[in-house]
Every structure is written in structure tokens, then in C-alpha cells.
Design a protein around this nucleic acid. Structure first.
Lengths: 211, 211
DNA sequence: GTCTATAATGGGATAGAC
DNA sequence: GTCTATCCCATTATAGAC
């Protein structure tokens, strides 16, 4: 209905991704969105609620598809790491079809959510979407039955860290890549490099085998 | 000389690592350090300068040793990824010998530096310590002569991201690990899991081979 | 070198008119 | 729903006494 609410969210998601949550003031958001300052509090209640709404909008867009793909994989007899990663990343990439750069924006927001100390956000996300992380954990374990629990746990979180960090630092990486390699970078290209990197890391020797 | 300066830096490094730079006020720092609020501006000039001083103190402690180890490896005929990672990570771990938790603190600070939009900090670090990144890049290339430039570039930054993120999220990971696995985690243990993960990721098939 | 007091700014939130 | 005006708070930074 109210187009003001959407204008605020559209402006906020870009600014949050670029500068982080606490560095982005409501005054800046409303001026970019060309709406009145008081509109944020009227429509969302508080800045915290705006942050949650922005991130939740992304989760709503793709979590259903990831859940379906994960459930399919859980029903299969065996699973490859590549399949799991694609089930997760393809719906993210396809966010770009409706909205340019929205995949990169989303991942940067996730990175911010992970690293900025926004306690309310972590609680909100783990309560609402923790089931996706559980599915992901079970699938990774299924794809790597030889690894013990500890090894799976750590590699899984390293993987998540790599993904989130790569996307959160997307802009910095893009700048460096273009300077160093004369290569223009889009999100798809980056993910093409990322997937083999991650599958390789899961297939490496365990720390036990090395010690 | 002035013990006040050190009290400020010691308090600031912990608070910055825990909460980030912009979320940590000078009022909090000086109250934890039990010094007067005005002392930060007197001794450092500004909050920005304090941030740089805190991070630079860490770099000064370990950059010399990493540089020597890297230079040794550059003189060798061939290099293994494990050697490169150890040359980088062992001096970091050994920070803990003089000061408990300082390795984890340092990596968390690095993560903050990478993700928070503190432009001045990125400029400062790349001007003063960019030569270490160049050495690291050359070594990774030497250890993986079959990979083309692009592939090395991307994997290198994914690796840095994984390392920094793992350490930056150290506390969160520690908490989850203890809840999920009943395993007590210290920095050394985490790095034992991290190194094979990273070496594996560098040895994976390239994106070209898969496509 | 340390302290108090205060300036100057910018933040989130809200009351109340329209 | 939207706007102006304003409150109240926290921040960094600094002037000036000791």
C-alpha cells in the first residue's frame, strides 16, 4: 500500500549494505528516500525494527526455495557438496533477476549482521530461520560421512564465514580485482570462483591425518 | 613513559574487538581504563588516531617475524601452502605467549578493520603493510604454479576472508562449539582445524576444470 | 600531564498541527 | 499518513584551571 514504506526500505538496504547499520542514520535514509524523517518511526516503530524488516524481506524472498531444495537433497540417498552449495547459492544469485545487485546487497547485509554487534538481529534471525542452518548442517554431514562431528562443525562455519565475508567485502574485493587484474567483476563471476574453493576445502585431509 | 597511554590502549583494544570501533565510545574506554576522558585527545589527538595506534601496535609486534619467514620462503626453490600459512599464523598465535587472548583480539580487530567502513584505517594499513600482502600473493602463486592469476587472486582473498572472519567471530563460534559439541575451544585448536581447510581449498579443481 | 566544565554536533524519537 | 518543531540524549573535542 503505502509506497513510503517501500521507499524507506529500498534506500535503507543499500545504505546499510554500504556503510553498516550504526553508521547509517535515519536522517540519511529518509533524505535519500525523499520522505520525512518521522516516517521511519511511524511505519516501523524504531530503527531496530527497520533493520529487521530490511533483512527479513530478503529472507522471505529466497528462504522458501532454499528450504525446498534442501529437503529434496535430504531425501536423496547421497549428496555432493556442490549440490548443497548450489541449492543455497543459486536462489541467492537469482535475486538479481528481479533487482540488479540485490544478491550482492543481501550478502553484504548478512555480513554486517554477523559482524556488527546487533544482538537483536541475531536473535531474530536464529529464531526465524535457524531451521535452515540445521538443514544445511545435516546435509554437509551427509555429504562428508567420513568426517567426525567436530570437523564438520568447524568446516561448516569456516565455509559460512568465507561466503559471508566474501560478499560483505564484495565492494573492496571488486575494487582490488579491477585494479590488479583489469577484470570486471560481477556476483556470478565471484561465485564461480567461490564454489570450487569451498568444495575443495571440505575435501581436504583432516587435521588428524596431518598430525 | 606515560602509563596512561598504555592503559588507554589496553582497554581500547579489547573493547574495539568486542564491539567494533564506532560502537565503542571514548567515554567507555576511559572509564574502563580508569583515566580521564580528556586523556585520549591529549595523548592520541583523536579517536581515529587511537584506532590506528591500537592496530599498529599489533602489526609492529609480529610483522617483522612474518616478513623474515616470508623472505626465507621466497628464497626456497619450492614452497608448500602449509609452510606459507604457518609462516603467517604462527607469529600470530605466539602473541598469546606475552598476553593471553591477544591473538584472538588481533584477528577480531582485523576483521573489524576489514568490514567497518573506516576508510582512514584501510589507507593507513595498506600504505604501511601492503608489502606483506604482496609477499603473500607471490608466495601463494609460487606454491600453486598451475593456477592462473585470477584464480590465485580470488582464492587468496577468500582465504584471508576465512581467516579473518573465523577469528573475528571467534567468540560466537566458541560459544556455539561449546553448546553443540561440548568441546572447549582455544585459538590453537581452532587454527588446527583451519589450516587443512585452507590448504584443501587451494588445491581444489579450478572453476574452469569444472565448467 | 591531569582534571572540570562546556562547547558543538548529530543522533533517535515524539507531540501535535494539518 | 505526513509534516514541523522540538526534546532528550550521547557523542567527540577543546578551553582553561590546576
Amino acid at each position: 500500500m503505502s509506497n513510503t514504506k517501500e521507499k524507506i526500505m529500498n534506500a535503507a538496504e543499500v545504505l546499510f549494505a554500504e556503510q553498516g547499520f550504526s553508521e547509517t542514520s535515519m536522517r540519511l535514509i529518509t533524505s535519500v528516500a525523499q520522505v520525512n524523517l518521522a516516517a521511519v518511526n511511524y511505519h516501523f516503530g524504531s530503527k531496530k525494527d527497520l533493520i529487521q524488516a530490511v533483512i527479513d524481506r530478503y529472507f522471505i524472498r529466497f528462504s522458501g526455495r532454499v528450504h525446498i531444495a534442501f529437503t529434496d537433497l535430504e531425501d536423496n540417498e547421497s549428496v555432493e557438496m556442490t549440490e548443497i552449495l548450489e541449492a543455497l547459492l543459486i536462489p541467492v544469485i537469482e535475486l538479481d533477476e528481479t533487482n540488479t545487485d540485490s544478491a550482492a546487497n543481501f550478502m553484504r547485509l548478512l555480513g554486517r549482521a554477523y559482524t556488527e554487534s546487533q544482538g537483536h538481529l541475531k536473535v531474530f534471525l536464529s529464531e526465524k530461520y535457524g531451521y535452515l542452518l540445521s538443514q544445511f548442517t545435516r546435509l554437509v554431514h551427509k555429504a562428508n560421512p567420513d568426517l567426525d562431528n567436530n570437523e564438520v562443525f568447524w568446516r561448516l562455519h569456516f565455509m559460512l564465514g568465507t561466503m559471508v565475508f566474501a560478499m560483505a567485502g564484495h565492494q573492496a574485493l571488486k575494487d582490488i580485482a579491477e585494479a590488479d587484474l583489469n577484470e570486471t567483476v560481477d556476483t556470478q563471476r565471484m561465485i564461480d570462483y567461490l564454489i570450487p574453493f569451498l568444495t575443495g576445502s571440505m575435501q581436504s585431509q583432516t587435521s588428524m591425518e596431518i598430525n
